[in-house]
């Protein structure tokens, strides 16, 4: 088979203790038998490990932080495009998605394709909208409330039973057993990720996740459920196993059909002692454990690239059950000259 040559820009190339999904996304694309890819890493920090993983990333450019705004990002992408002629960009980080969604028309004019949720889809599934989202689409969600000031934690007993989960807008969460702990988490998380803070009823049980891909027309192109087997102190899965749970697949298809979700996503769920699943979060991008799906026979990154390019993609109907991923860390030896280049020139 003649492989299509393609250049793909990938963000989130930081496989650290709270890993970005970029490297597993790249591994999926590299595994494609249909595409011969040149991979352009798009990084935010000079020590993002992906910058130095030359067997996976052909060249890396630094991007301005999302807080710098969409205009700065567009300027930078225009420069990168003049050098690299990107066909597709896959943004993988929550904090940058708003800017990329906003820039989608301009990037398309430049020849860069993406497969992203619409701004409405992106906003609607926010943690602070989850209550309404659950009601609208008839999906069980834990009771939640958005708060803006630390003093508000003192009124929570009216609506919640401790423990509660205190969550940041984009990242971070803590389980609070009393108002004092809730206030501490409020201050810690809001200082890092801003407001609002989301208070969610704690659900005791086991964590399950689904990685999926929607085509924007209501079709689920891919979906693989996973049970976390080992969780780090940051709440990240360090090992997991693909499972055969029809309820989760039905929930996923229902979510995609109802929202006409476009792009990759992750559903985070908790199964309580009665066997009922609660949707805790919808991440509007591919998760870092996506390579498990590739290993199970559903190459989601490859399918996403094809969707971005407007190609017809047949939905995956099967996957291997009982496949596990086990993550590991690894020390690379890097010459200072490489660090110097990325730090001073912003590219390597």
């Amino acid at each position: 088979m003649k492989r299509t040559k393609i250049t793909v820009g990938v963000t989130g190339i930081n496989p650290i203790d709270s890993p970005g999904p970029g490297i597993p996304v790249i591994r999926g694309i590299r595994d494609s038998v249909e595409m011969e890819s040149r991979i352009i890493g798009l990084s935010y920090e000079s020590l993002d490990p992906g910058i130095y993983m030359h067997e996976l990333v052909d060249k890396t450019y630094q991007l301005p932080y999302p807080s710098a705004g969409a205009d700065r990002l567009l300027d930078r992408l225009e420069y990168i495009q003049s050098k690299e002629h990107l066909d597709v960009i896959i943004p993988n980080l929550d904090a940058e998605l708003y800017s990329f969604i906003k820039l989608e028309p301009q990037l398309k004019q430049m020849g860069i394709h993406m497969c992203l949720p619409t701004l409405f889809q992106f906003e609607e599934r926010h943690k602070f909208n989850l209550d309404e989202f659950g009601k609208k689409y008839d999906i069980p969600v834990p009771k939640s409330k958005t708060i803006y000031a630390p003093e508000e934690v003192y009124g929570l007993e009216k609506d919640f039973m401790y423990p509660v989960v205190i969550k940041g807008k984009f990242y971070d969460a803590g389980i609070a057993h009393n108002p004092e702990q809730a206030k501490t988490y409020f201050n810690k998380i809001s200082a890092k990720w801003g407001l609002p803070i989301i208070v969610q009823q704690f659900v005791m049980g086991n964590e399950y996740n689904v990685v999926g891909l929607g085509d924007g027309k209501g079709n689920t192109i891919a979906a693989v459920p996973m049970r976390k087997q080992f969780i780090t102190d940051k709440g990240k899965a360090w090992a997991g196993i693909s499972i055969d749970e029809k309820i989760l697949l039905d929930m996923t298809r229902k979510f995609v059909k109802a929202t006409k979700w476009k792009g990759g996503f992750e559903l985070e769920l908790m199964k309580d002692a009665n066997g009922k699943y609660f949707l805790l979060e919808i991440n509007p991008r591919i998760p870092a454990w996506v390579y498990l799906a590739v290993g199970c026979g559903q190459n989601i990154p490859e399918a996403l690239v094809k969707l971005a390019l407007g190609k017809k993609v047949e939905p995956y109907t099967d996957y291997a059950i009982g496949k596990m991923f086990v993550r590991y860390s690894y020390d690379m030896i890097v010459d200072i000259s490489e660090f110097e280049k990325i730090t001073t020139l912003g590219e390597l």
Binding site: R227, Q229, G240, I241, I243, G322
Partner: peptide, 19 residues
């Protein structure tokens, strides 16, 4: 019915992922 059990007695519940 989907319960997988090996000759060594290792058993995986494919629905919950527990072994």
């Amino acid at each position: 019915k989907n319960l997988a059990i090996s000759e060594n007695g290792f058993c995986l519940n494919p629905v919950t992922g527990e072994s």
